[in-house]
Design a protein around this nucleic acid. Sequence first.
DNA 1: CTGAAAGCGCTAACAA
DNA 2: TTGTTAGCGCTTTCAG
Lengths: 343, 343
Amino acid sequence: MQQPTIYDVAKKAGVSIATVSGVINNNGKYSNKTKEKVLDVMEELKYYPSSVASSLTAKRTQTIGLIIPDISSPFYAEFARSLEDWGDEKGYSIIICSTDYNEKKEKKYVSLLLRRRVDGIIISSGFNNVDLIKDIIQQEIPVVLVAYNIDSLQLNTVSVDDYRGGYQATAYLAELGHKRIAIITETVQSSAERIRGYQNALNDYHLIYDENLLTESRATFEEGEIQAEKLLNLEEPPTAIFAFNDILAIGAMRAVLKRGLKIPEDISIVGFDNSVLATICNPTLTTMAQPLNDMGKEAIGSLISEIEGTVKRKQRILLLPELVKRHSTGPANLKSNKREVKN
Amino acid sequence: MQQPTIYDVAKKAGVSIATVSGVINNNGKYSNKTKEKVLDVMEELKYYPSSVASSLTAKRTQTIGLIIPDISSPFYAEFARSLEDWGDEKGYSIIICSTDYNEKKEKKYVSLLLRRRVDGIIISSGFNNVDLIKDIIQQEIPVVLVAYNIDSLQLNTVSVDDYRGGYQATAYLAELGHKRIAIITETVQSSAERIRGYQNALNDYHLIYDENLLTESRATFEEGEIQAEKLLNLEEPPTAIFAFNDILAIGAMRAVLKRGLKIPEDISIVGFDNSVLATICNPTLTTMAQPLNDMGKEAIGSLISEIEGTVKRKQRILLLPELVKRHSTGPANLKSNKREVKN
DNA sequence: CTGAAAGCGCTAACAA
DNA sequence: TTGTTAGCGCTTTCAG
């Protein structure tokens, strides 16, 4: 026999399918005798209730779609893992979709998830096509945005306090005596708030804001390296670089090291995310940690409460980033605050 | 209206649901006129055909289960990404299950995937409970094993040539003049073949096999570090360490560096996998690359050919690993072949 | 406490 | 070329 169905179980146990369904879902009122009988037969037949069938009736698939730029990137992989665990705890599975920041893929995957009737969708920053999100909402599928905000849409949201992250990292560097602190920003939304934090910290520490010290980049090692090189080539190069994610920071480290400069003696570097990469590179990277596990937990919680309708109002959850000090930062070396002759 | 169904489309387009179904699935024979009409209405209603309903009839979910130890580990994340891409190309989505080498989770996830009626399951090494795999087979769900072999079961498999990997890495070190080459093996199946390759290379290069140079470890940075320390504490420590994955290799690097030894001047290190970590650490890691993308492609191909019944015979696909030389390896420093006094 | 029956949204004969 | 109809495997009233 192919996979047994509820009918097979019912027949063999000498009960109706309704009864079997009842004991599967533990819908109360059945005598221990029938309950046991049914359970035994299920075991004997190696019966696995089809969740596709039950989804059709129940109109719930117990599945959540996750749309991120790239699951192979450590930061997203770690986040996905957190979602998987919290989702599993609540009885939900995750379907992961990596978009590569590509609108074609975004469209394809949104359509896929809608057809699969996922119960909700979690979308992280790096998603471009806002109209697609409107499509999702129109289908009345709950959405939560992670590290991402869309002013025109009223949605559940969980993010890290980017302003604070930008401020703290900068303040830390300022306290180490750095006067010229450069930033390598990412071309995503969260950057704006981090920049604001950076500027305010500069201000509070009486440092001047120099636009030359602000660069923007896509999140790859190579791009981080290129931007850092530009920074080092400046008339008055920085003594510290604050990159808006660990990948960029490591790219920047490469540029610095290639030049024969020392980290942190000549240049300090700070990253953002605290992905596993930060502990691997050499020197290890001082970075603003994103509380990935909490973010996963909150995202799942927020999504499920919307799915199950327990909470009506949309919530915006803001988590605190935390500075993790490692070996890529140190006191400013004022001498190096001159352009190197060699390059 | 809630999500529109095929009935809504049919009514509005003035055709039968069979017709709508036909044009959705492009089942030939329909006049352009009706086809266009239907397509228009679908668009207008923002109709997304329910794949849960079609799965129930078609007895196919277009979903593949992936069981790995941990999606947040770079190696698996990169592999998962490859599967996602190749699966998507063939019209399949992936549900990822991270087991943490934990049999409870293995059981839970296998049961989950069976209930979800996935069309096939990909299981990587690190999976412990073979009986569970038998359960899957009994349900007639195709399985492919990745980097994993079960002698008692005739299954599709795709792996890298571990014997060759072990041999090549060792031979390379031998050619650099290393006489005492240690290995840190992982407690997984692939290790056996790699060890055999290691031994044969030793033999071919007339080096003696010393059991003290063989350690075994779980795949964590910490464990790698601990094992490397043991090795360095030996009466006659090695001048080269070949770790069976990048994580262990990086752990080993830490131990070496902590001792004040230089890589590769004092000790050479070789890893296995060529995950992103190998390019991040410092010095960058010489490692045996696993062709992750090809592995993903073959795994999906193999699985789908079994799902669709196009190929009857089980296939064992063996891919070649490749040595990627970076900066963690160099000529043997014979002087350091004595035990350091300080530790 | 248990069973009969309708229906979830779609596919696939089979008719027309 | 198009429509009718019988399921797919389950959940859920509603009777008994």
